[in-house]
Design a protein around this nucleic acid. Structure first.
Lengths: 130, 130
DNA sequence: CTTGACCTTCCAGTCACTGGAACCTTTATA
DNA sequence: TATAAAGGTTCCAGTGACTGGAAGGTCAAG
């Protein structure tokens, strides 16, 4: 399988796949013409990576998860720890976004949105301390 | 006021303030020794920027908002449009994060987290299509 | 034999800073 | 007065996870 095939199969852009090789997440074989050759295991790893990235895991987390995936002696607690940590980070991100959202929604609601210059949004932004 | 003073006053790192000058958001005067000199208007602008960034506005949005802030002929609808657009983006971000969170929480819950290798998290990540 | 669809590498850009080096200026202290 | 500490300056490189584009090699079809 060439990079285009695997790209279609996994839904990952070819650029991304090359990048993953660059940073050592995968090491596909090479054909005599220099083309990358992807086998079953590469396909599996890429699918794994794609799914982990979808769940928001950072690349370094993906690296750790992939290592655990390939280590049949792993403890599930190690995997769980990575996931829990990520879950906490997602929660804090959501929290911060919801704070922003609340303030912003208030401001948007209070702004007439007409041709006049008077604007509570700008008023809020320009006040010294929140 | 030197950069250190304004940094303490606004809570923005000196590095950030220099960066804001670099990209043309502010243009503080210069002393004969080359030091930046910050006046009231600079202080106001920086406070404005700090607050807008806190609300998650992108730098280019900040630039637009600052321009509107300084344009006394502005229409509040222009401000509102920027804010609404940002609000929509925050909402979509929150939505995506909540989806991740839901899946991840399920997986974490289903994982024993002990010394055994069996792990539903890895199982999920390795399955071909979600 | 050429066209077009592949593939390759390498370099630069994204976003909003942040760290660090190398150096200059001002202020406080011995 | 010498010096050291605490400020200031510029410039370059790195962050994360790609993405775009240039310049060029390879392969199958007509």
């Amino acid at each position: 399988m060439n990079i285009g095939d695997i790209s279609r199969q996994t839904g990952l852009p070819a650029k991304t796949i090359r990048y993953y090789e660059d940073i050592g997440l995968i090491s596909p074989a090479r054909d005599t013409n220099g083309y990358r050759v992807f086998r079953e295991t590469d396909a599996h790893k890429l699918a794994f990576l794609g799914r982990a990235r979808e769940l928001g895991f950072a690349i370094e987390d993906c690296r750790r998860l992939l290592a655990l995936y390939e280590d049949t002696e792993r403890a599930s607690s190690d995997v769980k720890a990575v996931a829990q940590d990520h879950l906490r980070q997602i929660d804090s991100k959501i929290g911060r976004l919801q704070e922003m959202r609340a303030t912003l929604a208030e401001l948007v609601k209070s702004c007439a949105g007409d041709e006049r210059p008077d604007c509570p949004i700008l008023k809020d932004l320009s006040k010294s301390q929140a």
